[in-house]
């Protein structure tokens, strides 16, 4: 159920992609997404797909696992595809009621879908191969320049990593409370919308209480270890680019040039 969502979950294996600096992966994901929106046409998407499959292969995450993550966007995908097919003016293919499906719409819809799917898969590769802590470390360092204009980068990164850390804890907690209430005869599945919403109260109240309790405990534990913000704070494992990161950047650069090239060849 909730556990099926694979976006944002870390898949623990050892691979060259896992070992990359989180900044490299962040930049890589950004470049990949930009390249998807720059290109149009079958060749460009083929190269994009090839590159993605290559990265997935190297990351040792099973393709099945990443595809499963797409479940979460199926509805979004269906909506945007049908909007594009039926609402783009152009040559008519078929008609349902007052809605005309057009050839141009179909093409745009397919491009849309491909882009969206690659985008989600590409970013899942990043989250699947990077622990949340590394990810926020990378973000903090990459966005460090914002400190100059008084953006509390460290604090935001810390909040983000705590939030990410709490997701599995709260999911587990939800599961536990749900079971405890089910053991008392609560029914979360049947009934109309109003009944279902009402049946959430025995779940949500204890969940909020426990979230606050956990937050207080964590704040206390952090203060007990003298945490007082990012000022002068050093890292146990400072981020440092290694040779493989330069290799990765070069590969990305070549890929990006090819993608731009493909666009102009035609």
């Amino acid at each position: 159920m909730i556990r099926d969502i694979t976006i944002g979950q870390y898949y623990a294996v050892d691979s060259p992609i896992h070992k990359l600096d989180p900044r490299t992966k962040l930049a890589g994901t950004m470049i990949y997404i930009i390249s998807l929106f720059l290109t149009k046409g079958i060749i460009g998407y083929c190269i994009g797909a090839f590159f993605l499959l290559f990265i997935i292969r190297m990351s040792k995450v099973p393709l099945k696992y990443i595809v499963r993550g797409l479940k979460a966007i199926v509805i979004l995908l269906l909506i945007s595809v049908s909007f594009n097919i039926f609402l783009t003016p152009g040559e008519e293919i078929f008609q349902i009621w007052k809605l005309k499906a057009t050839k141009e719409g179909l093409i745009i819809a397919v491009y849309m879908a491909v882009r969206l799917i690659f985008l989600i898969m590409g970013s899942s590769v990043m989250t699947l191969t990077t622990t949340p802590n590394d990810l926020t470390d990378g973000l903090e360092k990459s966005l460090g320049f914002l400190k100059k204009i008084k953006v509390p980068v460290h604090e935001i990164a810390m909040m983000m990593s705590i939030a990410l850390r709490f997701i599995p804890i709260l999911i587990e907690e939800t599961d536990k409370i749900m079971k405890a209430q089910m053991a008392r005869g609560a029914d979360f599945e049947t009934g109309g919308i109003i009944k279902k919403a009402k049946s959430m109260i025995p779940l949500l109240v204890p969940l909020f209480v426990s979230a606050f309790r956990r937050a207080t405990d964590l704040a206390m534990a952090m203060e007990a270890r003298c945490y007082r913000g990012g000022e002068g704070r050093t890292k146990m494992k400072p981020l440092k680019y290694k040779q493989r990161d330069y290799v990765a950047y070069t590969t990305l650069f070549v890929y990006f040039i090819i993608m731009i090239g493909v666009k102009y060849i035609k």
């Binding site: 536990k176 409370i177 079971k179 405890a180 209430q181 053991a183 005869g185 109260i201 025995p202 209480v209």
Partner: peptide
């Protein structure tokens, strides 16, 4: 209803 189950820290289910 016939098999009652009291979880660990059951006070966390009060609402």
């Amino acid at each position: 209803s016939k098999v009652g189950l009291v979880f660990q820290y059951p006070e966390h289910q009060l609402f």
